[in-house]
């Protein structure tokens, strides 16, 4: 399989019937990227380009690396992750909870926010990408099925993992494109509504955190996604 096929497979899945499965994480990414932008919106000391582009880029990297490892059954690191997936999902929930708290406290801790911006705009999105790959249970699309087939056999596991990485990058790219479009829509919004939207983002991420910590994410998948199938 060509890498372009894997990239397109991942990218196009967002805009197809497969979005039903991706809804496990896509709305949460959108509220995160909006909330993060609004959290750092008023800080003119941070380069606007960095503020806009760095988080989705690092999210893509974090998501695709873990997605590839979890897809690669023939790789020892992938098996190790899979064998600890339940605990890792709880850890992911705790991390998402910290982001939610940060959004709530951001307005009060503006100076600290500025000092910590490499963590807020760099490490945060990277770890969120990792967290989302951990809490995601993918549906196997035809392209992804071919990649998984490669990932299973020991002799092609490396190639399969690399293609899964590219597929994950494609998915992350579609998230980023849509997320950036949403930011462009929200940008001209009157300032009075922005704290409301940021708090809404915090609340939604807080719910996601609780669902993963308590294990009730399964109800979201079964009942919400189930409505659409």
């Amino acid at each position: 399989m060509e890498w372009t096929t894997a990239l397109w497979g991942g990218f196009s899945s967002f805009f197809s019937i497969w979005q039903i499965c991706i809804l496990q994480i896509s709305p949460f990414f959108m509220v995160y990227i909006l909330g993060l932008y609004l959290t750092t919106d008023e800080d003119s000391r941070i380069n606007p380009g960095v503020r806009l582009l760095l988080p989705p880029a690092l999210y893509m990297i974090g998501f695709s690396i873990i997605y590839a490892l979890l897809s690669a059954r023939g790789i020892s690191a992938g098996r190790l992750l899979m064998s600890n997936i339940n605990n890792l999902r709880i850890a992911a929930g705790i991390f998402i909870g910290i982001i939610s708290l940060h959004f709530v406290l951001a307005a009060r801790l503006r100076d600290m926010n500025h000092l910590l911006w490499p963590i807020v705009l760099g490490l945060g999105p990277l770890l969120l990408g990792i967290s989302f790959a951990l809490i995601y249970s993918p549906c196997v699309t035809p392209t992804y099925a071919k990649i998984l087939q490669m990932s299973v056999a020991s002799e092609t596991a490396g190639q399969g993992a690399r293609l899964a990485l590219i597929y994950g990058l494609g998915m992350g790219l579609s998230f980023s494109v849509v997320g950036l479009a949403l930011i462009m829509i929200v940008r001209p919004m009157p300032a009075i509504y922005k704290p409301l939207l940021r708090n809404f983002s915090a609340a939604v991420l807080g719910v996601l955190a609780l669902m993963n910590i308590t294990g009730v994410m399964v109800y979201y998948k079964a009942f919400f996604l189930g409505l659409l199938v």
């Binding site: 590839a68 690669a72 023939g74 992938g78 299973v152 020991s154 596991a157 490396g158 690399r162 990485l165």
Partner: peptide
């Protein structure tokens, strides 16, 4: 690099084709 390195430690007990 991490991913590539993981690829080098492929487990021979994987279910192949």
């Amino acid at each position: 690099l991490l991913l590539t390195a993981s690829g080098c430690s492929e487990d021979a007990s994987s279910v192949a084709g």
